[in-house]
Nucleic acid binder design. Structure first.
Length: 330
DNA sequence: AAATCGGGGAC
DNA sequence: GTCCCAGATTT
């Protein structure tokens, strides 16, 4: 892993933000893109948020990308370009919480601050047989304190990365290698046969169903309309086609008040339902049931853009897949 | 304290 | 389908 070959705080920071709730295999190409496109924090700060989000596209949790950009600007503008070099100062960066501040502080600055990520929760809960829920206020405090007590203050970077790697490779969530584990004579969970019930995590999330209708306008001069998502909710800062939310009787969709309002400015030549069966795009908290409507029009207003240039804007994976499949763009 | 925020891979 | 990933932030 390339971020193991450096202690440059900028690169460690990049890797840690990218890897939040993200597997190495998924994050690696993004780390390579970001370090190549933005070799220094100044390059990142000088980019536009849209540029950053375009590079982040497909990785999910887009607030990470927005916060990354904001933090880069903060470092350049308010810290004279000098990367914060203590746990306490690192915590002030947007998108940097306890884990990430600890990781950067230990790896880049040799500060003995213990990291507690999903791996560490698992290793400690099993080895010490702790069943405090890891996502409870008490659990977060308890495991942080324990990790902090255990850290080798002589080599905090090695300790932190070692315990995480041990959790990722040996003490895995499913089917950990207890048989040939160097701790199998002292692991409480193994002795009590509770490997499979630890760590304990509170309640699972409930998924909401949402019904999205995207209006894909096509003008005779090969233009279409996209809009930037603002405000709360998913995909902040990304673009999408004009959208009407709601579950409609498809035969009456084009007569609905919302549809008429959204299309009032244009002269429609034809409407086609691109997919009869809704495309179900699954997020962790939402299942999005999506129908794309292809709407041919004479002319669009001057906010329209060339279909060919769609790919320069950051869009959710759901929209990207449609663009690739329908417009054959990449 | 609980909810929200993506997407993908392993099983 | 379920789990969970080198978590942080908002409500």
């Amino acid at each position: 892993m390339p971020w193991r070959q450096t202690t440059d705080p900028y690169r460690i920071w990049l890797s840690e933000i990218i890897l939040q709730q993200t597997r190495v295999a998924q994050g690696l190409p993004y780390y390579l893109k970001f370090t190549e496109t933005f070799p220094t924090v100044h390059d990142l700060a000088n980019a536009s948020e849209e540029e950053v989000l375009k590079l982040w596209q497909g990785l999910g949790y887009y607030s990470r990308g927005r916060n990354l950009h904001a933090a880069a600007k903060y470092i350049v503008e308010d810290c004279e370009g000098i990367f914060p070099n203590t746990y306490k100062e690192l915590l002030k960066l947007k998108g940097v919480g306890d884990y990430t501040a600890s990781a950067i502080a230990s790896i880049s600055f040799n500060e003995p601050t213990a990291v507690v990520d999903g791996n560490v929760y698992r290793v400690l809960s099993r080895y010490f047989g702790i069943d405090t829920p890891i996502n409870s206020t008490q659990g977060i405090k308890e495991f942080k304190a324990l990790a902090q007590e255990l850290i080798d203050i002589e080599q905090p970077a090695n300790f932190n990365q070692a315990i995480m790697e041990f959790g990722a490779i040996q003490c895995k969530p499913q089917n950990p290698y207890c048989l040939h584990c160097i701790f199998n004579d002292s692991c409480v969970a193994l002795q009590k046969n509770s490997i499979n019930t630890l760590p304990v995590k509170l309640k699972k999330i409930k998924v909401k169903n949402r019904y999205l209708n995207y209006l894909v306008f096509k003008s005779s001069d090969h233009k279409t309309i996209i809009e930037r998502r603002t405000g709360k909710g998913i995909w902040q800062g990304l673009y999408q086609f004009p959208m009407i939310e709601g579950e409609f009787d498809v035969s009456r969709f084009r007569e609905s008040e919302l549809f008429l309002k959204k299309t009032a400015a244009y002269t429609i030549k034809s409407i086609e339902q691109h997919n009869i069966k809704p495309i179900v795009h699954k997020l962790s908290h939402q299942h999005l049931h999506t129908i794309f409507w292809i709407i041919d029009v004479e002319k669009l207003d001057d906010t329209a853009l060339e279909i060919k240039t769609l790919t320069s804007h950051p869009v959710p994976v759901l929209i990207e897949k449609f663009i690739v499949a329908y417009f054959n763009l990449k």
